[in-house]
């Protein structure tokens, strides 16, 4: 098996008296779809935030491509999130003032791609996710399923090496959820991106190659254990 892209080692993180992570470890290999499973409050979202450099663990290390995220400056972590990572959340991730096309083009523009080129690539991704027709609409004017697909397009437009998806289907019905998952995993496989998928639904997790269970802030990664 090739070298892991993202490694978490014994992460701990508390919010006041609440322990969200109490010794979580896992590995993400290039191009794999990994499901983080667990009941609500198990710490899986916090684990995802730590993996993505959004939150800092109180102790433990997160290595991305061999680099310890804690040694990176805020600007470097931002750049990493901008260029190497993509994000899909449950809801509320699209900028309401911008059109869907502009939302998808946003990460490219943040990475200093010219507007015309960014919007051309954004339009391609919208088509790929079967939402070309909403390009000119604002997020408030599209359905939940369309909005999530726009969000997936936005997460993938920079061709990231890791896509973090936190309950991407949580606010959708089964049919729309399946569609989002199908398009997300297919697009990720096409571009070779790894996906870290947080979900509590087995049917959603079934789109993954491997699952890691989070319980009481601890992981049970059968692969690591073995």
């Amino acid at each position: 098996m090739n070298a892991p892209l993202l490694v978490a080692e014994d992460l701990h993180r508390s919010f006041g008296p609440t322990r969200a992570l109490a010794g979580a470890s896992l590995r993400v290999h290039p191009g794999e779809v990994l499901a983080l499973m667990g009941s609500s409050g198990s710490g899986k979202s916090t684990l995802l935030h730590c993996l993505a450099g959004i939150a800092r663990p109180d102790s433990g290390r997160v290595l991305y491509a061999g680099r310890d995220l804690a040694t990176l400056s805020d600007a470097e972590r931002s750049a990493l999130r901008r260029e190497e990572f993509g994000f899909v959340f449950q809801f509320g991730q699209l900028v309401p003032e911008l059109t869907c096309l502009e939302n998808v083009a946003l990460p490219l523009r943040l990475a200093r791609v010219g507007r015309r080129e960014a919007e051309r690539r954004a339009a391609e991704w919208l088509a790929r996710l079967e939402v070309a027709e909403v390009a000119g609409k604002r997020p408030g004017e599209v359905s939940g399923g369309q909005g999530q697909r726009v969000a997936v397009a936005r997460a993938l437009v920079t061709r990231p090496r890791v896509v973090f998806a936190d309950e991407p289907t949580g606010a959708l019905d089964s049919l729309n959820g399946e569609r989002v998952m199908r398009l997300l995993t297919a697009a990720a496989r096409d571009t070779g991106a790894a996906v870290v998928l947080v979900t509590h639904e087995a049917r959603v997790a079934a789109y993954s190659d491997r699952e890691v269970v989070v319980r009481d802030g601890r992981t049970r990664d059968l692969e690591v254990a073995a």
């Binding site: 931002s78 750049a79 990493l80 999130r81 990572f85 993509g86 959340f89 509320g92 990460p107």
Partner: peptide, 12 residues
């Protein structure tokens, strides 16, 4: 929330 999200995806 939106601002935090924009920062999370790497906005300067």
């Amino acid at each position: 929330r939106l601002l935090a999200m924009l920062v999370a995806v790497g906005t300067r």
